[in-house]
Write a protein that binds this DNA or RNA. Sequence first.
DNA 1: TATTTTTCCGAGACCGTTCCCGGGATCGGG
DNA 2: CCCGATCCCGGGAACGGTCTCGGAAAAATA
Lengths: 338, 338
Amino acid sequence: MQKKVVTIKDIARMLGISKSTVSRALAGRSDIHPETKQKILDLASQLQYEPNTLAINLKQQKTNTIGVIVPETINRFFARAVGGIQKQADMAGMNVMICQSNESYIAEKKNLHSLVSSRVDGIIVSISTETDRSDQFASLTEKGIPLVFFDRVFENIVASQVVTNNYEIAMEGTEHLIEQGCKRIAFVTGPEHLFNSRARLNGYLDALRKHNLQVKDSYIVHSHYRSDKVEEYTRYLLNLPQRPDAIFAINDYAALEMIHIMKKNGLRIPQDVAVLGFNNENLCRFVEPSLSSIDHPAHDIGASAAEMLINHIRHHDMKPEKRVIKSSLIIRESSRVQ
Amino acid sequence: MQKKVVTIKDIARMLGISKSTVSRALAGRSDIHPETKQKILDLASQLQYEPNTLAINLKQQKTNTIGVIVPETINRFFARAVGGIQKQADMAGMNVMICQSNESYIAEKKNLHSLVSSRVDGIIVSISTETDRSDQFASLTEKGIPLVFFDRVFENIVASQVVTNNYEIAMEGTEHLIEQGCKRIAFVTGPEHLFNSRARLNGYLDALRKHNLQVKDSYIVHSHYRSDKVEEYTRYLLNLPQRPDAIFAINDYAALEMIHIMKKNGLRIPQDVAVLGFNNENLCRFVEPSLSSIDHPAHDIGASAAEMLINHIRHHDMKPEKRVIKSSLIIRESSRVQ
DNA sequence: TATTTTTCCGAGACCGTTCCCGGGATCGGG
DNA sequence: CCCGATCCCGGGAACGGTCTCGGAAAAATA
């Protein structure tokens, strides 16, 4: 049943010429008679010839492909970042191979091996919440495979990275809540070992200290980015002896769910509890109250990472570079107390 | 700078044996002395040897990879479907290569060529809104490459497909709105040439006819799945001489935005206009009013498509199969008028 | 000890391309 | 008419693996 896939050799045989000549014609090189070339191209399209990229890549010792490892594309931040990567790759005529770690260290490692085995020309990574060691990435550098991290990065590794101004924006967001008169500000952030979680936490802490507000550990929640724990830690916060009067949430979906739970408990947003989200999803504008958030330019971050990686691939001697992309605070009803 | 990547030949040379033997050890075959095998494995892991999948795939004439073309993973339905595909592929020990058409016919065609050139073992597709012809897919069958469509499928092509009961669920949803006393039900659906859009539309129309309600073309909006037109057609619907008293929306995000606009215009949901969404996103439970929706089991659809494709890959003589996965109506506040 | 079987390994073809190299044919200039 | 340059094209190695086949050495059997 299985039809034989047509190769360059088939075309050569049918035309009574050598495969070198066919290769020349298909590659669009000039040292070939126009007439011969036309015959080859005609037959190729008639037979629906598709070049075997496997063979080409093997021979060329490069794949024209950049590998991407992200936690999960169900997370819109990463979906948008991947979009930015793909757009940039398209412009450079490169392909993209996307892997999801599903926030698992093991899966991430498997993805990495898979990409290396596929001989991608470079790799872009945003690490999983579970990942707390970087040696598996260090070995890439030894192999000469360019590597760029974005958003979720390691602090101490020497590699290019694209991050946002986590510290500053967390500080700005917290100060905004303080200016609204909030004094007991809860902070929901990611796992402690993730660099950007720590940076955000520090921004939050420094904002409190700067305004002489008491830091209470019970107001700090370390959450995974997954959604199934939101109800649990919301109840925890609401049941504290001194209920928070503001919540800086890890993302907009979590913020939305928290607001929903608090409303059911008779709390008014923002009068009783002000809420600030993260990511500035579209839905922020359509919910009630509209949700203040941090605009986190996912698409640009991805595009920037891809651009940087492509540079590394093309000029192998480049030094690691760190880019900071600015997030911005978008104030809406959920945090406007006065 | 660029360190040489270690190959099977390097290991053979360093150990003074032939590459056949190294291959045997690495492939875990039995006709090799345990001691030799151990030496090879030790050196391989010490040198961080990674097999070149390009070479393996070229030789084996298969890639153990399934290609996926979806409109865009920023759309959560497709992100979840891809998740289902990936899970199923993992279980079967296969890889997944994801392409996004970005709802463009041209890009979709490019993706297809790219996957064929990469010699994927099979392809899963959900077509773009622009795609209204299927010949590019027909040629896959000639080449003997298994193909499975899901959700957005062609009506007349002979290929395996996984769809939901679009007609029935649109009918059920519409009847639900009718039972709530709504008489002027607007329907927002996808482009006319898409099979599932038409199926849903027919379900809607037949529900109206069954209950002797007048069908008005002005209540039917053909929208793309992108979000930037929502405001436009919402205003159109609200400005109709006979304003609709119910809206069956194309997805939950559109529904949310429509509700927001209507509220700003002083309309009460659901008393003035009942709203029914599509996809049953998490946020449905957290918005106000909570959003009725159609639960569209994206993950299962993807998993089912992948399972089917893997079967086709393993048993080349299989007949095309059509699977229907049931969606279900989830009633919440936004459509509960009484 | 002679023969058979088993164990283990090497040689080399092959997958589908690219590309270097060399050579025959044609052409132009002197 | 001769000869170097130009134009086309074919042969064949190479990319990094797999796998078949055959054979030498070791082990088992007679």
